[in-house]
């Protein structure tokens, strides 16, 4: 448990950071909150020759609502920034609640959403709710900016579409027709536990009829995944316990979990069924919670 030797840079601008990452290539790792990177380095899972800290990039620490664009969440916001943010509390408390369920208070004070997303752990708590809300991610690199859908960002455990020279700059939650959203995290204790299953849903309900639905599942596949068959099933249905239960059954058929020291695949699959149903009910009855 000792940090290996490494070079350390703390660039003052995004351009400089991207330039460094481009030059250094595979040798470099980005340090934001450090709650994942430091542990991996201490446990000898990673041994980057260079650590590029992005802590000076203050422009990535804002959360704001931009008319016509949506809510923009800077990549260097910590989880507790999301928990405490009035804009989110007012518009999408489902997002602040998801952030609140992540890890423990110490980690939430340090860990950033950019880190949480780019780390691409299948059990991460924020991607499912962002995917349910159809969020996009703005990436910045030496060749400029690009925007990708959150659900297209992940390519496997620990893998994303980010190029070596790219940083996540912000997450944008677009204005919604969805009338409610909710994320349920199931961990093996009330704090400081990774999600065994995470289910996020967003629904558009009018006159008790489901016009649109998005269901995103965490910790049950190599990446966060949408349960598209369950979504299709829900569209046009009148809300009832039976419909929501059936959506849960369909969603549980769409996940591909593994068994590990925390839970069996079988258990995770059934938890998807249960929490899809429960999250839908919550989003339908209570809005963005």
């Amino acid at each position: 448990m000792y940090l290996p030797d490494f070079e350390y840079y703390a660039p003052d601008s995004i351009a400089e950071a991207c330039q460094l990452l481009s030059q250094l290539g595979e040798k470099a790792k980005v340090l934001a909150g450090g709650t994942d990177l430091m542990i991996k380095m201490k446990n000898e899972v990673l041994a980057p020759e260079v650590v590029v800290s992005v802590k000076n990039l203050d422009q990535l620490k804002k959360i704001e609502y931009v008319a016509g664009k949506g809510v923009s969440v800077g990549a260097l916001c910590t989880h507790n920034d999301l928990v405490k943010c009035d804009v989110l509390k007012e518009k999408y408390s489902s997002v602040s609640n998801a952030a609140r369920q992540m890890a423990n208070n110490q980690v939430r004070n340090r860990g950033t959403i950019g880190g949480n997303i780019s780390n691409a752990v299948p059990s991460a708590d924020l991607p499912p709710i962002f995917i349910a809300l159809n969020a996009t991610v703005k990436l910045v690199g030496t060749k400029g900016e690009r925007t990708v859908a959150m659900e297209d960002l992940f390519t496997g455990p620990g893998k994303t579409v980010l190029a070596q020279d790219e940083l996540i700059a912000e997450v944008i939650i677009p204005d919604q027709k969805m009338t409610g959203s909710n994320y349920i995290k199931f961990g093996l204790r009330k704090s400081g536990a990774l999600a065994v299953v995470g289910v996020a849903v967003a629904v558009q309900v009018e006159n008790n009829v489901i016009k649109d639905a998005r269901v995103a599942l965490g910790a049950v596949a190599a990446t966060p995944v949408r349960a598209k068959k369950a979504e299709d099933f829900l569209k046009g249905k009148t809300v009832s316990d039976e419909v929501l239960a059936e959506a849960g059954v369909i969603a549980s058929g769409e996940c591909k979990p593994i068994s590990d020291i925390r839970a069996s695949a079988e258990y995770r699959t059934d938890l998807v069924r249960i929490f899809t149903k429960r999250a839908l009910r919550k989003a339908i009855d209570e809005g963005h919670v």
Partner: peptide, 16 residues
Amino acid sequence: LLNGNFAEYRLPTALD
């Protein structure tokens, strides 16, 4: 040893 740390050796937390 698979869980020689307090993330995976789950002691209850204050909330539990």
